[in-house]
Design a protein around this nucleic acid. Sequence first.
RNA 1: GGCGGCAUAGCCAAGUGGCUAAGGCGGAGGACUGCAAAUCCUCUAUUCCCCAGUUCGAAUCUGGGUGCCGCCUCCA
Length: 467
Amino acid sequence: MELYIFNTKSRKKEKLQPQKPPKVGLYTCGPTVYDYAHIGNMRAYVFSDTLRRVLEYNDFQLHHVMNITDVGHLVSDADEGEDKIVVEARKKKKSPYEIADFYTDIFFRHARKLNIKDPSITCKATDHIQEMIDFVKVLVDRGHAYEISDGIYFDISTFPDYGKLSGIDLEEQQEGARVEVNPEKKHPADFALWKKAPKNHIMQWPSPWGMGYPGWHIECSAMGLKYLDGFFDIHTGGVDHIPIHHENEIAQNWGYTGTEVVKYWMHSEFLQVDGGKMAKSLGNFFTLDDIEARGFDPLAFRYLLLNAHYRKKVNFTWEALEGAQKAIDRLTEHVLKFREAPAKKGCGPRLQKYKEKFLEAINDDLNVPRAIALVWDVLRGEEPASEYYQFLLDVDRVLGFGMKDMERKEEEISAEIRKLIERREEARNKRNWEEADAIRDQLLEKGIRLMDTPEGVRWERIRKKEE
RNA sequence: GGCGGCAUAGCCAAGUGGCUAAGGCGGAGGACUGCAAAUCCUCUAUUCCCCAGUUCGAAUCUGGGUGCCGCCUCCA
């Protein structure tokens, strides 16, 4: 079975042919850790996680590298700005390293709640300053970079293919439309490889060009080349990275190696909220903690994301999340039924069909929504049998809903509620329906829903209505 | 100003030339139940933003229109 993925560079689905099969080197542009990662950020990582899971499902040997950007992101203006982490540190009166560690921890906590697997290697920019300096030195030596008063810049005029990835024609770009261009730069699109630090800049390191700190794109090149042994089979990121960040990476990689080191570029689309951009100023800026605070399961959010293709914008609404939560709750119920089911003869051929269709879906540029539909076909269309349960566990290697560990929600209930449930049982035994129903309503008010099953009463906590 | 994307049922969304337009949520009806809940069954887009065209055949291709969104700053 062949795996096809959409390559941003060619704008086509291409058959995956890694340089050294069965190995696949995957690089993911990781988080900038000066603030909370929001649910839009998390979409990008659910995407790269899905990609790696699909690769693993196809028996590729995965080598997955992700960076942690803990330095070098300017506040606003490209030339006059200040490191975002530094600003944050100043505000909170902590060291930049403490700030970065704090948000890194939260990022991984959120990632794990979403069943995002840890990359093989996670690398921090601040741990690779020397590699970046060496990289820049080579670019300077080869004439791809030049020095001006505030730093070392890449000379894009030395790279004829600049703009190819995003299809940008440099001549037609409105130069400095939103940013003032440093007049010392040879071309407005020349970008910083190394910045000279003012004295009060907290994070700075010695370099051949004096004290300073690395430019914004160099870390991915330096660390990626180091940990992926000189070649990226696949490089992922959000679509916002295409025009600047990845374009610049390509340029500097080419300047450094004289060749293209990334074969497939893959980019995930944005998550929108209520059909528009998510922004702090609009008050629709959410983190996974917000989702949990409203009583939702992080995996409901995972379901919501996986229910849409990674190259399509997905519209986040609380109503949609409600639907996703319901879906995953029911999925859980079904999975449990299948787990408890005995073996059954004769499901082999049908099972085979499902397996083929599943592989066909995910290998068609990660069409996970189609794969999920298939799971429902099994859950709703087949008699529970252990063979199907094995199939579910198998596909869950890609979907990552944690089916193996799914359990009915058995949350803690207070003694008071337990007592009410018991009193209702007594009333029911006496066929005192009025009292029993009254207690049931009372419990519902408290967010407890009762279900009288043949095996006795069951209960579950329900989410309180929004607002 | 430049570039790009999208428009499929109340909501979230698959599908990109040809059997009956996936799936989930919601809704309706039925079974079950003391009544419910949960579960199960059935139904829920004669039609894919509009108009014109190509074609034996289009949600899918082409042209035009409308609407929405994003990017052009180191935001995934």
